[in-house]
């Protein structure tokens, strides 16, 4: 259970870096705004916010965290302990899933009275979080500094977000569903607008597969880019 220890360490580190304060304030602002909006409008606003939350969190936080750890020499420090790389990656991913889930569920419960498919919401948040966090890992592995990370990350983020915007304008362009970001959005959107079991099953399976492939690739890129050089 060394990864659990690592998870504890990550949560502790993120807490001490002050990440959770920023996050709590952000969530509070959402709650205040949402309390002023009627449920019929929220049904459209909430899924978009709920989807953006873990994706932006995944991308922004992981880059900040990794490069902060790199600068403080924590990455090389963790490397010279028996902690395995996959345990390291997994614990980072899980730590971000946990705060996303917490924020999303609290916001949804407090501000929305309509019906919610929590299976769809939770699986959507978890998978969005995994994919975007791993994506952040990949970009961070190629970045030299925090600034460099953001410069590299923003165009990639736009690339992921464009198909999500397109699917609203052209709902018939079925091929947009191939984009993992769209597939994840389907789940979160479906949580507030109803989603059939086949749809739910297909999106979850597809995203799980993508997560798995990305995970394998990320670990390699991460070791090569951020720790062991040659």
């Amino acid at each position: 259970m060394r990864w659990l220890t690592a998870l504890k360490a990550d949560l502790f580190f993120q807490f001490k870096q002050g990440f959770y304060y920023i996050y709590a304030i952000l969530s509070l602002i959402y709650l205040i705004i949402f309390s002023q909006i009627s449920d019929s409008v929220l049904q459209f606003v909430l899924p978009i916010v709920m989807f953006t939350d873990p994706s932006v969190l995944g991308l922004f936080f992981i880059g900040g965290l990794l490069l902060l750890e790199k600068e403080q020499g924590i990455l090389s420090l963790t490397y010279i302990t028996p902690l395995k790389i996959y345990e390291f990656v997994m614990s980072k991913v899980i730590s971000l899933i946990l705060i996303s889930l917490l924020a999303v569920i609290v916001i949804s419960l407090v501000s929305y009275n309509g019906s919610v498919n929590y299976l769809s919401l939770i699986s959507g948040i978890i998978l969005t979080s995994i994919i975007f966090t791993l994506y952040g890992f990949l970009i961070a592995s190629k970045a030299k500094s925090i600034n460099d990370y953001f410069v590299k990350m923003i165009p990639q983020m736009i690339l992921l977000i464009i198909p999500c915007i397109l699917i609203f304008i052209f709902p018939n362009w079925w091929f947009l569903n191939i984009a993992p970001s769209v597939s994840a959005l389907n789940l979160v959107w479906g949580a507030y607008h109803g989603i059939g079991y086949p749809q739910l099953g297909i999106n979850i399976t597809y995203l799980t597969l993508i997560s798995f492939i990305m995970y394998r690739y990320t670990i390699k890129a991460f070791i090569k880019g951020m720790i062991v050089t040659d």
Binding site: R2, A9, F12, F13, K16, G73, L77, T81, P82
Partner: peptide
């Protein structure tokens, strides 16, 4: 290493406890 690798935001004791927990 020639450069101290430590968690700056944690206390000395927290550092050792945290890193120590990775070892058998």
């Amino acid at each position: 290493f020639d450069f101290p690798n430590l968690y700056l935001k944690l206390t000395a004791e927290e550092n050792l406890k945290l890193i120590g927990s990775y070892y058998k």
